[in-house]
């Protein structure tokens, strides 16, 4: 239950999140999520839910959402959205808004990026790649020295070094 009288509700929050009123046209048809690869993630990325949180102005709930960070930038949602909401742009805008509004925010995908060197579930596609004659992906985890250098490089940034406890172990 979300009590709109108690929750932090900012009616005009959408203006702060997004650069245009395109988002207000969303009618929750679900086209975007029907084509979204990140809707396979756990929890799934559900753009229609994010759009709703933005439009209702539910600040706390939107800050709690980690799913915008699992977007793989394929842009298919952008093509199929009948309302021209620009869902992909919306996902990116929510990321920026979250970071602006919570300087300590460490999105879980950055931890993954630090540990694995990439965020995509490429291991799932090994058999598929082989079946169409493509070789194994030269991902960075196959080169331990390079991965080490990559992690050192990330650790040199403020956001990672100030929160280094999250990346170790």
């Amino acid at each position: 239950m979300i009590d709109l009288e108690q929750s932090e509700v900012i009616p005009d929050m959408w203006k702060d999140v997004f650069d245009s009123e395109d988002i207000r046209f969303c009618f929750n048809c679900g086209s975007c999520i029907s084509v979204c690869p990140a809707s396979n993630a756990s929890p799934p990325l559900l753009i229609r839910r994010l759009a709703r949180l933005v439009l209702l102005g539910l600040e706390d709930e939107l800050l709690d959402e980690d799913t915008p960070w699992s977007c793989v930038s394929c842009s298919r949602c952008e093509e199929v959205c009948p309302m021209g909401v620009r869902p992909f742009e919306l996902g990116l805008a929510i990321r920026r808004w979250q970071v602006r509004n919570d300087e300590t925010r460490i999105p879980p995908s950055i931890v993954e990026l630090y540990k694995e060197g990439y965020t995509q579930p490429v291991s799932k596609a090994v058999a598929l790649r082989a079946s169409v004659g493509l070789g194994e992906l030269p991902t960075i985890d196959k080169y331990p020295e390079m991965l080490k250098g990559y992690q050192d490089m990330l650790m040199a940034t403020d956001v990672v070094s100030n929160n280094d406890y999250m990346f170790k172990g």
Binding site: M1, I2, L4, E5, R48, R49, R52, L56, E61
Partner: peptide, 14 residues
């Protein structure tokens, strides 16, 4: 008080 299928949650307001 009503249920929002998009947020899969109940909402209430005055």
């Amino acid at each position: 008080t009503f249920h929002d299928p998009i947020l899969a949650d109940d909402l209430s307001m005055h």
